[in-house]
Amino acid sequence: MAVDHDHLITPKRDFAGRSNLVHLPWWFVIILGIIAFMAFRIMTDPLHQGIFNTILQGLGTTLYVTAVSFIFALIFGLFLGLGRVASNPIIRNLTITYIEFIRGVPMLVLIFTISFAVVPLFAESFGLANNAISLTTRAIIALVLIYGAYIAEIFRAGIESISRGQSEAARSLGMSRAQAMFYVILPQAVRNVMPALGNDLIALLKDTSLVSVLGVREMTQVARLSVSTSFRYEETYFILTLFYLSMTLVLSLILQWLQRRVGARG
């Protein structure tokens, strides 16, 4: 038993050829295997190929909604996060109210509420026709408003993870509160929350499938439309699943690589 335990801690010992197998990321190999199997079927079978090409038409919209929503959610979330730790109690409490409100409602419900209740209300008060704002734009607005609240909590945690001594040092050099925040606290906080932000990017990519309920022609909606005429449920939904799985896998590899690069810098 003791020897086995030893292998787990020091897998690179000479006689431990067996432990190298133990330490292979098998989950990764299995997922790659599944993807390869599906890819093989798509390449060899015309039916699968057709479905693949159909869903591919939604890929651009999925990526577009993900990217645009994430960028604006980052900006919005940063402002909310700063409001969350503001010394002004009015700003702080209004921010907390918003964040708790969003976090207390299911995302699917919020997507309906924002798209069909909040956006039309605002559109009306700005004198815009109800249909002047496209469904894709509504979807992005909804995701930004929702993810902004989640990302705000990440930024808050990052800001609070920086020791008080850092802001005291900045303030004792004569910097204002805002200067201390922007030149000393935030740069460190952002670096600390990079992994958490990466997780939210992946979660957002997956959650774009929810905006299919608005009729936005992203991958899930395209797949649903296709199924409604072809009745090829099994093939279509397996290939759709494969699309998301490969995308999140690639994205997490990219994020890990980025993380290592940033981490190595200092």
Binding site: E168, A169, A170, S172, L173, G174, Q188
Partner: peptide, 14 residues
């Protein structure tokens, strides 16, 4: 604060 420098126990370099 601009006229008063402060040195901390734990340095607090950025």
């Amino acid at each position: 604060r601009a006229e008063v420098g402060m040195v901390f126990q734990r340095f607090e370099l950025f």
